[in-house]
Design a protein around this nucleic acid. Structure first.
Length: 291
RNA sequence: GCGGGGUUAGUGAAGCGGUCAAACACGGCUGACUGUAAAUCAGCUCUCUCCGAGUUCGGGGGUUCGAAUCCCUCACCCCGCA
């Protein structure tokens, strides 16, 4: 089902963590009667509120949010699921005469919607478990014997596994979705570092440790959602490996590193309008809607 | 004051006569990444006129063809005896 000639307007807000995406999205939503779709691989999970800086109930009361709290941490969820649900949400919001606003820091999720990725087939859980236990060298050897090419990230076990699962089918993407305005929040290094440190400290004050403990009680450490920054570090701390002080610093460091990866991802999308002030976003959205 | 141990690149830490600009880890920088993506993976990280060259291993002085590695000495840190 290719893209239709006339797509309804879509506002997209991206940027590194703690850059102010949520606040800007709320602002724009209230100004133009919009609804927010979270493009975030962690806020989809129930019970992960503090550590993911999930929009508060108050915020969600002000503006309707989609794709938050939609699965339990022990349920599998993939980009493909996200794409399907996000596209449905856009259709739904538009049908009700409102403006859809896609907001998030998970670059892959955002791009799956913006470029209408065609995915290449799910993995068979049984087979996945078997091949995922192979070493990088074994995976490469397996690809060779199957006559499949190595992926670009040839030492990345996850990518190697996927090549096997898809039989080496190429990735397919379309042109950028028409009628879409992508706003990127640009925050200088020092400011972002400060905001991240403040946010992490606030998370501890808000009861992060208890949230983590509850999740671990319910699901254990092995589930993918528990590999989230702000949660995974507690494993070391709780086993006595690091002090409370070091724990906090480690989470801050990991968050900073994550923010850098996000910037790298978004940097290559030349369609993003990078801004640093709200007025610039308002101007961009105004232009989009007046077309 | 005497005896013993220590001082290595941003940090931690190997090295203990040549193959050392110096392992490894962390941190930092750059980048990749379409069904685990807040995941995962890669390159770079003393300096320069950067296929080569020049300064490093607490300071200074020696030994040696050759020293981060041995000796002397000074400084600082830790432990033991006073």
């Amino acid at each position: 089902m290719g893209s239709k000639p006339d797509q309804p307007p879509l506002v997209v807000i991206v940027g590194p963590t703690a850059s102010g995406k949520s606040a800007l999205a709320l602002d724009i939503a209230e100004r133009w009667n919009g609804e927010i779709i979270a493009a975030d691989s962690r806020t989809i999970y129930k019970g992960m509120d503090i550590g993911t800086a999930k929009p508060t109930l108050t915020d969600r009361d002000r503006v309707r949010h989609h794709l938050i709290d939609i699965v339990d941490p022990d349920q599998p969820f993939t980009v493909s699921d996200f794409q399907r649900l996000a596209l449905a949400a856009i259709t739904d919001i538009t049908a009700r005469g409102k403006l859809p606003i896609l907001v998030g820091g998970t670059g892959l999720y955002v791009d799956a919607v913006l470029f209408n990725f065609s995915f290449r087939g799910a993995s068979d859980p049984g087979q996945r478990q078997k091949i995922a236990s192979l070493s990088v060298d074994e995976l490469q050897a397996a690809l060779k014997s199957l006559g499949l090419p190595l992926p670009r990230n040839e030492r990345n076990p996850r990518h190697l596994v996927r090549v096997i699962e898809t039989g080496g089918a190429p990735a397919v993407r379309q042109q950028l979705r028409p009628n879409t305005c992508i706003i990127g929040l640009d925050v200088d290094r020092e400011t972002l570092a400060q905001r991240i440190a403040d946010r992490v400290n606030a998370m501890f004050e808000a009861g992060l440790e208890k949230e983590v403990a509850d999740l671990v009680d319910a699901y254990g450490w092995e589930r993918p959602p528990l590999q989230t920054i702000g949660y995974q570090e507690f494993r070391l701390y709780l086993s006595g490996g690091i002090s409370a002080q070091e724990l906090r610093q480690l989470i801050i460091t990991h968050t900073l590193q994550y923010a850098k990866r996000q910037k790298t991802w978004f940097r290559r999308n030349k369609s993003i309008h990078w801004i640093s002030k709200t007025d610039e976003a308002v101007a961009l959205v105004t232009t989009l809607l007046n077309k």
